[in-house]
Design a protein around this nucleic acid. Structure first.
Length: 420
DNA sequence: TCTGGGGTCCTAGGACCC
DNA sequence: TCTGGGGTCCTAGGACCC
C-alpha cells in the first residue's frame, strides 16, 4: 500500500507559517524575477488568480482583492521541506521524496496495516503541529491511485486523508475523473485519448491493452495497469545521482555585453558545480546557451548553445568555468538584448571512478579536490558567495529581481523571527 | 514595462558491428 | 544486377512532472 503526502499550497503555506496575519487572506508566490505566479493560497485560487500566469496579467485581481505577493524564497521552502520529510521518515522508513512538497510512503509496515486512514490522520496532525503546514494524504494500492486519492483528499474531505478502499463505487469514482487529471497524462496525451474516444479514467482502465500499447507508449500501459490496482511503479530510492545538472535563470534586466554574460555563466556554473560535488560526481562536458526575450517580438531574436568538453572529468570550479566561458565566446553575438543564460553539466560520473593514466594528473586532481572542499565548507558556513571567483563579477547588475522576498526565517540568523 | 527553473523517461533513427 | 538480419549504443526531441 502506498501513501502520497502532499503539502497544501506549499509555498503559500510556508509564507503563512511565519506571518500569521496572512491566514485567511489570498497569498501568491512569484517565480524568479517576480515574473509568473507559481503558487497560490486557497483564497487566491477562489478569486480566480490563474496558476503560471505572468504577474502583470493578474494585476487587476491582485489589487482588487488586496492579494499579498511574495518573491520565491527557496531557502525557506527547502528548509521547511526538510522538516516535513524528516517527520514522514519517522513514520515510514521506506519513502520516496518525489518533489519539494510531496513524498510517497510505503504503508506496509506491520503497525500501519490495521487502519490506514487513522494512521494518515495521525501523520497529518503531527506535521501540522510540528511545522504549521497542512498536508493531504491519499492511500491506495498503487502510486497512480494514491495520487488520485490525494487529490480527492484535498478537494473533498475535511480530514485531509482519503483511502482508496473507502470508495463506495470505484467504477463511478473513475468515471467521474477526466483522463487529463490522471498522473502522467498531460495535455498531448489527453487530447489524443479524447480523439480516440477515451474521456475518463474508467474507460482508460478498461481499454484494450494491445490497442493502448500500439497507439501510445509503455508509459500509458503502466498507468492503465496501475488503475487496475496492479502496482507497476515502485518506490524509487532517492540516493541515485542526477544524470544532468542544470542551472538557468533569466536576468533582472536585458544584458548585452559579453562581460556580463560571462559573469552570469560563471555564477551558474559555480552553482552547478556545488550540486555536482554534493553528489560526488565529475562532469565531462559543459553546455552553455544564451537567448533573447522571445516575448519581445519586435526585437532581433537569437538563441544558440554549445557543448564543450572539459580536459578531463572534473568538479573543479576554474576548470568548469573556463570550459563554459570558452564555449560562450563562440556563441556570443553582439547587438542582441539577452534575457537568459543556461548551463548544464553533462557526462557525469562518480568521482570514485575518476580515470587514471596518461592524461589524468592524479596529484593535481587531489589538490583541486581539497581546495573545493574548503571552498564549499566556507560557503556553507557563512553563506553562499562568501568566497567566489572574480569572474562571477562584483556588482552583478544582471541578477534576478526579488523585490518582495520574505526573510529566510529558518536558515539565516539575521532573519530569525523576533518575538516581543 | 513585466512572461520561472530543474528535472526524468521514452522513442525513433542513425552509426556501427558481425 | 542482385544488396540480410539482428544487435547495441548514442542522441535529439517529445512529453510529462512539480
Amino acid at each position: 500500500m502506498y501513501g502520497l503526502v502532499d503539502c497544501n499550497n506549499f509555498y503559500a503555506s510556508c509564507e503563512r507559517v511565519f506571518n500569521p496575519k496572512l491566514v485567511g487572506k489570498p497569498v501568491i508566490v512569484l517565480s524568479n524575477n517576480d515574473g509568473c505566479i507559481i503558487a497560490r493560497s486557497q483564497e487566491a485560487k477562489d478569486i480566480g488568480i490563474p496558476m503560471g500566469a505572468p504577474l502583470f496579467k493578474a494585476r487587476d485581481l491582485i489589487e482588487k482583492h488586496n492579494v499579498k505577493s511574495f518573491s520565491a524564497n527557496f531557502q525557506l521552502y527547502g528548509d521547511m521541506s526538510h522538516r516535513v520529510m524528516n517527520i514522514l521518515n519517522s513514520y515510514a522508513p521506506q519513502m520516496e521524496i518525489y518533489s519539494i512538497d510531496e513524498a510517497f510512503l510505503s504503508m506496509d509496515s506491520a503497525n500501519i496495516i490495521k487502519d490506514y486512514s487513522d494512521y494518515g490522520v495521525k501523520i497529518r496532525q503531527d506535521i501540522l503541529r510540528s511545522t504549521g503546514l497542512p498536508v493531504s494524504i491519499g492511500i491506495a494500492p498503487t502510486k497512480s491511485l494514491a495520487k488520485i486519492c490525494n487529490h480527492h483528499a484535498k478537494k473533498k474531505t475535511t480530514s485531509g486523508v482519503f483511502y482508496w478502499n473507502d470508495v463506495k463505487d470505484k467504477n463511478i469514482f473513475l468515471k467521474n475523473l477526466p483522463v487529463k487529471e490522471i498522473w502522467g497524462v498531460g495535455y498531448r496525451t489527453s487530447y489524443k485519448l479524447n480523439e480516440l474516444g477515451i474521456y475518463n479514467a474508467l474507460q482508460f482502465r478498461d481499454c484494450n491493452e494491445m490497442w493502448l500499447r500500439k497507439n501510445f507508449s509503455v508509459t500509458e500501459l503502466r498507468i492503465c495497469t496501475e488503475l487496475k490496482e496492479i502496482p507497476c511503479l515502485e518506490l524509487e530510492s532517492n540516493h541515485e545521482s542526477k544524470k544532468n545538472i542544470m542551472s538557468s535563470r533569466s536576468f533582472g534586466r536585458p544584458v548585452e555585453t559579453l562581460k556580463e554574460l560571462e559573469e552570469a555563466v560563471s555564477v551558474y556554473i559555480t552553482r552547478g558545480a556545488e550540486k555536482l560535488r554534493e553528489q560526488k560526481s565529475l562532469a565531462s562536458y559543459v553546455y552553455v546557451s544564451i537567448k533573447t526575450n522571445k516575448f519581445r517580438e519586435e526585437l532581433p531574436q537569437y538563441f544558440n548553445y554549445i557543448i564543450t568538453p572539459t580536459n578531463s572529468p572534473t568538479a573543479y570550479n576554474p576548470d568548469l568555468i573556463k570550459t563554459g566561458l570558452d564555449g560562450l565566446k563562440q556563441i556570443y553575438r553582439p547587438g542582441f538584448k539577452y534575457k537568459k543564460a543556461t548551463i548544464m553539466l553533462l557526462g557525469l560520473m562518480p568521482d570514485a571512478e575518476a580515470p587514471l593514466g596518461l592524461f589524468f594528473n592524479n596529484t593535481d586532481y587531489h589538490k583541486k579536490k581539497e581546495l573545493m572542499n574548503r571552498f564549499d565548507s566556507l560557503n556553507n558556513q557563512y553563506g553562499r558567495e562568501v568566497i567566489k571567483y572574480a569572474s562571477n563579477g562584483i556588482k552583478q547588475e544582471w541578477r534576478t529581481k526579488k523585490e518582495l522576498c520574505s526573510p529566510r526565517y529558518t536558515t539565516n540568523w539575521e532573519d530569525l523571527l523576533v518575538v516581543r
